[in-house]
């Protein structure tokens, strides 16, 4: 944890396959944001995006780190994972497309809504991936305008 000049940063580790703790980071980030007085609609969008990003690491990667940065103008999330990566990003971004196993689908995951949900809720979203290495997401929320839906 570091705090300087109104910038708050946090780092969270995410363990692959650890469903027991999935959602904890999103809850933590939501708590941090609720203490700042940021509008509820932005907090709601940030919580949804964080949850989906967290679950993607749990389901598809070996491990990952979520970097959270809050400054007076924006919330920034960067999620770096080590895992299988994504073969076709445009396909992965398509609503309904998923590579989840049958087991995950039975649990109600793998609806093919994760990445589209993140994009929909973010003001700015970047994704890059190297097959066999891992995926990086960057998710931005701007605090001075209402931004995306």
């Amino acid at each position: 944890m570091t705090e300087k000049e109104n910038v708050l940063t946090r780092e969270f580790e995410i363990k692959g396959k650890d469903f027991s703790r999935a959602g904890n980071i999103s809850s933590k980030i939501k708590e941090i944001l609720q203490e700042t007085g940021i509008s509820n609609s932005i907090i709601r969008r940030a919580a949804i995006a964080t949850y989906e990003a967290e679950l993607n690491v749990v389901m598809y990667a070996n491990k990952g780190i979520l970097y959270f940065t809050l400054d007076p103008d924006s919330i920034r999330l960067k999620i770096d994972d080590e895992g299988r990566g994504i073969k076709d990003i445009s396909l992965a971004m398509k609503e309904g497309y998923s590579t989840a196993t049958e087991e995950y689908r039975e649990m109600g995951f793998g609806a093919g809504m994760g990445l589209p949900n993140i994009k929909k809720n973010a003001d700015k979203f970047k994704i890059s991936s190297i097959l066999g290495k891992g995926t990086t997401l960057e998710i931005f929320f701007f605090l001075n305008n209402s931004g995306a839906s």
């Binding site: 959602g23 649990m107 949900n117």
Partner: peptide
Amino acid sequence: LLSDVMANSKEKYIWITLQVHLNIVAVAKL
């Protein structure tokens, strides 16, 4: 579908589901 509930349910709603595993609690809380 958990992502569907994340996307479309609203605060103070009650959630009807057949899922019984741990992760439903995280969704309800968030």
